[in-house]
Design a protein around this nucleic acid. Structure first.
Lengths: 230, 230
DNA sequence: TCATCAAAAAATGCATTCATAATTCATAAT
DNA sequence: ATTATGAATTATGAATGCATTTTTTGATGA
């Protein structure tokens, strides 16, 4: 008996440079490609087992995202995270996050709210266990869920592109106990706004939440310098 | 007598793919590459007199910007402007424009305000002469000036990338006399907010201004279909 | 010892080439 | 006449090669 055609998933073949883009993006975000350092084109070719052509296409794409800086005839460099960058990026993220809050309250379904409450409880559990890695992970999912609920692909794309640029910093920046408690509390407020469909309120909470995050990262940056290269 | 070295401008050599990116972007924005059509890779190579390698790098970059859609093994297509796109893009632009208004009022200098008033007067003159092309041009400059005054590169970049996607539509969408008068009036309000450094007010006016623009473009879209290809 | 400059080495930008996938077109079958 | 099949054509994805630029290295002189 042969399976029906409809039962088969659509086979969408990804091209090599797309995979590379994601792979290298991940390397930048998790820090294995450090900010301020040169991108070792040859090494990456060996590592991924590809030629320079698709690799360089991926680099161009990442540069458009702002994760890399291309200097003509001098190659690609991992963009540094500077104080100025953060002060630039966070207000923009704030504006986008505020919008996502408003839109999410307009479009979110009851089922989605319930799902998010579950996620939230899970996160609180990790907070109580002081399990930072899992806390971060679930946290990420919650913010993604808010974006999804906003039903605006453009917004999601723009936000994610900015978030990627600062996520590197957020990963390494350790939270104090107080900040962590505060962040968790803010998340409780986020949930309540969602449950009340209070778009205005959610806007404000999300913006505050982000501003506090900025403060954390800023503190960390003060104590941690990066390589001097551009 | 040889010129001194210092007198020479820093010769920043642009790489080929950067030029190409700009050239093709322009072709998309001004409509000579129509939405929904396939990008003729070979033709463009001949036109610009380059090989496929830098051209394809440019295409990748434009795809990251959302101006093109890449289908694996099937090439690049000019993204269509759909009703849904606009309804997605404009709220995001609105949020960014509101932020730019607030920031601009904080950072703009008196000299900049004067310069903008000059621009504004020029634009009004073109309005009175019903010179749409020049009106658009100066209009563009004014909005750029507001972005510049916000002193936030990230914001400018994000905004421009979105603006590019809808500019194609704005170009072709004809304004009615009423709409044109209204837009000009809104610009007068923008100037007054800037002169008073009224960030809140400017936010609101810019957002309204944009919403009206959306209405214009939306009307146009209703009457103008695009090729059916993805 | 340090600075300067030249030559060698390495890396980048771009063109070309090759393999593979997609599209078109002609032919055959219903 | 219309649809399906398969070969020919075309276009894309990726690797390689070459010319040019940048960087490094090392030798020379102060």
């Amino acid at each position: 008996m042969t399976p029906t055609l409809a039962a088969q998933p659509v086979f969408r073949r990804k091209s090599l440079h797309e995979d590379l883009t994601e792979g290298i993006r991940e390397q930048i975000v998790n820090g294995s490609l450090a900010p301020g350092t040169k991108v070792p084109e040859k090494e990456l070719c060996l590592h991924y087992g590809v030629s320079r052509t698709p690799l360089r296409e991926a680099l161009k794409a990442l540069a458009t995202d702002g994760l890399l800086t291309l200097e003509p005839n001098r190659g690609a460099w991992v963009s540094k995270i500077t104080q100025e960058d953060l002060d630039e990026v966070f207000p923009v993220m704030g504006a986008l996050e505020a919008l996502s809050g408003e839109l999410a309250c307009k479009h979110i379904t009851a089922a989605e709210v319930r799902k998010m409450r579950t996620l939230h409880n899970k996160m609180v559990k990790y907070y109580e266990q002081r399990d930072l890695a899992n806390y971060f992970d679930v946290n990420q999912h919650i913010h993604e869920a808010i974006l999804d609920a906003a039903r605006n692909e453009t917004l999601s794309t723009q936000y994610r592109s900015l978030a990627t640029r600062v996520r590197r910093a957020r990963y390494v920046a350790n939270m104090t106990q107080e900040r962590w408690a505060q962040a968790t509390d803010e998340h409780e407020q986020i949930m309540q706004c969602l449950e009340k469909r209070d778009g205005q309120g959610l806007s404000v909470v999300l913006k505050t939440h982000l501003e506090n995050k900025l403060a954390t990262v800023r503190d960390w940056l003060k104590d941690n310098d990066q390589p001097p290269a551009a």
